[in-house]
Design a protein around this nucleic acid. Sequence first.
DNA 1: CATGAATGAGGCTTCATTCAT
DNA 2: AATGAATGAAGCCTCATTCAT
Lengths: 200, 200, 200, 200
Amino acid sequence: MTPALLHALPPIGGMDDSPRGRVLRAAAYLFHEQGYARTTVRELALMVGIQSGSLFHHFKSKDAILCAVMEEAIIYNLQQMHHAITQGVTPTERLKGLILAELESINGKTSHAMSVLVYEWNAITEQQQEPLLAMREEYESLWLTVLDDLKLEGKVDHDTFICRRLISGATFGTALWFKPNGRISIPELAEATLAMALRG
Amino acid sequence: MTPALLHALPPIGGMDDSPRGRVLRAAAYLFHEQGYARTTVRELALMVGIQSGSLFHHFKSKDAILCAVMEEAIIYNLQQMHHAITQGVTPTERLKGLILAELESINGKTSHAMSVLVYEWNAITEQQQEPLLAMREEYESLWLTVLDDLKLEGKVDHDTFICRRLISGATFGTALWFKPNGRISIPELAEATLAMALRG
Amino acid sequence: MTPALLHALPPIGGMDDSPRGRVLRAAAYLFHEQGYARTTVRELALMVGIQSGSLFHHFKSKDAILCAVMEEAIIYNLQQMHHAITQGVTPTERLKGLILAELESINGKTSHAMSVLVYEWNAITEQQQEPLLAMREEYESLWLTVLDDLKLEGKVDHDTFICRRLISGATFGTALWFKPNGRISIPELAEATLAMALRG
Amino acid sequence: MTPALLHALPPIGGMDDSPRGRVLRAAAYLFHEQGYARTTVRELALMVGIQSGSLFHHFKSKDAILCAVMEEAIIYNLQQMHHAITQGVTPTERLKGLILAELESINGKTSHAMSVLVYEWNAITEQQQEPLLAMREEYESLWLTVLDDLKLEGKVDHDTFICRRLISGATFGTALWFKPNGRISIPELAEATLAMALRG
DNA sequence: CATGAATGAGGCTTCATTCAT
DNA sequence: AATGAATGAAGCCTCATTCAT
């Protein structure tokens, strides 16, 4: 259906040019584009350039491939968030860094994997979610720490948990409409999102 | 897994207590809870209380059921938006009305169908999307008209299209975390969302 | 491989001419002839005259078909043993009845199912063996009762358990070599076996 | 399921401690325990302590391994029979020797290989059976010679072929129930079997 | 309109075997 | 000889859809 070229997908983190990494890159792309359930292992193998049976030398099951895509997405982007936070001096700068980094995650090189993480979350069992949830909590606590600082400065009203959820809705929602080279760039989008998050 | 009771699902719009409506209510529930691809027609028939073959007397295919759920969701909620707009006198009041109505759509009685509309959008073909897209444009134009008015009042910065997308991300994102009877009510949530949308 | 004719296989007990019974007759034949693991569901379906997918309307899995064959075999032959015992007046007559009935089971109309019961026993899990084991115990207790009576009469030496096991080896072993219309008939075989079992 | 230790399996005949012999010992064990079809070459290789691909340096195919196990079983036990016969002076003593030797084959050090020989006989093609059948005939003719002698003495009634088959059923059947260190020893079992074979 | 057995294409996975290293 | 990744055929099973009753 989509004989897309694998080498056009950026190798990042564990999704490198090893056999395993190439499967994950193709899987992130196809699971995002078509959905997990509608993607067959044969399509996936075709895109990777191997036989479908060979997938099972690298992963125990189709499920395991999905989990691995999600894990790579969250590991990589957790690193990005840690990095973003160290760059900012003031809480406002740190929030802007987080927003920019999250928008990059969602719309940049890891967009496929991130969308899979959000959209196919219910396709994995609770047991499989468990290790990912631990990382997700760490991820979210970075945001809450910054937002709590901003609340002390009076720049954030309301519950910081609610505030984070609204921001996260806004940023993750960009996956559904944002086009690079469209009417607005990612940094501009970050600026607009920051403006919404903070008191005028 | 889901021996849920059909009569606990609210009959709304075309999802009434006719045979067709009962199928749609069950479908909205199951497609939301398990995903379209992971829901079998047998499960659906079981929940409705008929045999799987009988579904095809009411709908041409499983796909057609999905489309009908989406159509009911969008028709009903378009009505709600029209109603919300007539209630407000000032643009700010009208925006608040829209936000509140959209949050009700997403988290209230039509939550299953709305989630299906968003999450399973790519499961239908472009031809099937077409009639829905027309209604969606009408839906979105209601928002843009109000936001344009607010921009004239200086209460909205930036591109109103971008503004709408960020709001829509925030509101639709609530489907992933909002719990009725949780730490915040829907009207409070609308208040918080409105505060983000407008300049302090 | 073996386009054998289904209607040549005798309908007995639960293996009647219902769809389910026809599957069981074919399964008993093929599992005996080729072994359970070497028989594919497609071969089985072909012999029954249905599509392979249709098998799964009647049985949950290939495993379940094997279990059902075994169950039918043991249920039917347990009945035969009960009947045989009521026909004999003296213990010797009853033993002869049991031997004859068992040889009929193994070499007569239920030969395929009986061979499957013995040869594929380890192909089913312990949980699946459980209900069958209960019937098997009843089956064996019929033999032990008769042999214990004979021991009191002095016509059997040794442990009756051992005696039964040797007889059962001899009778079940006939499955590997006995040919109807060969050099000896089943009643003659029963006579010879009885002679071995009892003291001269 | 079977992390059994290879060195616990007795090296006998061609199943010595050479690479080839170690494969055969493991194969006999696994093919008996799980069945030929349910044993994978990977399991076999794991038990031997090599990679699955390496098996094919020693044997042309999985089939060839099965044939070799059977061949070793029959060669070794044919020797044992020849030896047993030379030990007895009278026909009765020779028959007892054969029975004892066969029971040792089936329940002693070669039990796995012998069970494979019987239970998996139909898993090999007729061409593969051919060389084994020649040895089997030699094996069986040893028995018939002794039984014919006994018939002349009046100690055996009936057809000696039938007699042998019943004895063989009884002895081979022990594989299904006999436990060393159980209620009876192999020599006692031989005694009981001999008593059945001969006129009181 | 409803039933439910049957279809048959297609899904995921296993596994004996090969072969470049 | 040994390795172990890759193969590709084949296996079991699922499921939307049809149709005779």
